Simulated assay, not measured.
Amino acid sequence: MTDHALDLAALREATDRFLGAAAAMDDLAAAAPSRLPGWSRRHVLAHLSRNADALVNVLQGRPMYADSETRERDIERDATRPLSEHLADLRGSAARFEAAAAVPADWSRTVTMRNGVTDSASRVPFRRRIEVELHHVDLGVGYELEDLPDEFVTREIDFLTERFAGHPDVPSTGVAADDGRFWTTGGDAEGGPVVVRGTAPELLGWLAGRRDGSALKTEGGPLPALPPL
Rank of each mutant, 00 (worst) to 15 (best):
L87G: 07
T70D: 14
N115C: 01
L90M: 10
D89F: 10
D119Y: 04
N115H: 13
R123L: 13
R91E: 15
E133F: 02
D119A: 13
A79L: 03
R91G: 06
R129V: 08
R96G: 01
H135E: 03
M113P: 00
D119C: 07
P82C: 05
T118G: 04
F126I: 06
D74R: 01
P82E: 12
L90E: 09
R128T: 10
I130L: 09
S108P: 00
R127L: 15
E72Q: 13
S120P: 00
V124A: 04
L134D: 09
P125D: 09
V137S: 02
S68N: 07
A99K: 11
S122Y: 04
E131Y: 14
V117E: 13
R114I: 11
A105S: 11
D106K: 06
L83S: 04
N115G: 01
E76R: 13
L90V: 09
H135Y: 03
L87N: 03
M113Y: 10
V132A: 12
S108V: 01
A79I: 07
R71Q: 00
T110I: 12
D74T: 01
V117I: 13
R77H: 14
N115P: 00
I130N: 10
A88T: 12
V111F: 10
A95V: 07
A105L: 05
L83K: 05
S122H: 10
D74G: 00
A66Y: 07
T70G: 05
Y65F: 15
R71Y: 00
R81Q: 01
T118L: 07
V111P: 06
A95C: 06
V117L: 12
N115M: 03
I130F: 10
H136W: 03
S84L: 08
M113K: 02
L90K: 04
A121S: 07
V111I: 13
T70F: 10
A88K: 09
A101P: 03
R73D: 13
Y65Q: 01
V124Q: 05
T110W: 07
S84C: 04
F126T: 07
G92D: 13
I75Y: 00
D74Q: 03
V111H: 11
V137M: 05
L134K: 03
V117Q: 10
A102K: 02
W107C: 02
R128Q: 12
D138G: 03
S108I: 01
R77E: 15
A88W: 07
H86N: 09
A95E: 15
I130K: 03
M113C: 03
A100H: 03
S84E: 14
S93W: 00
L134G: 07
D138V: 06
R73F: 07
P125H: 06
R91Q: 14
A79T: 08
D119E: 08
D74C: 01
R81P: 01
D78A: 13
P82V: 09
T110G: 02
R109T: 11
G92A: 15
A101L: 03
V103E: 15
A94D: 14
R77T: 14
D119N: 04
V111Q: 13
I75A: 02
A101Q: 05
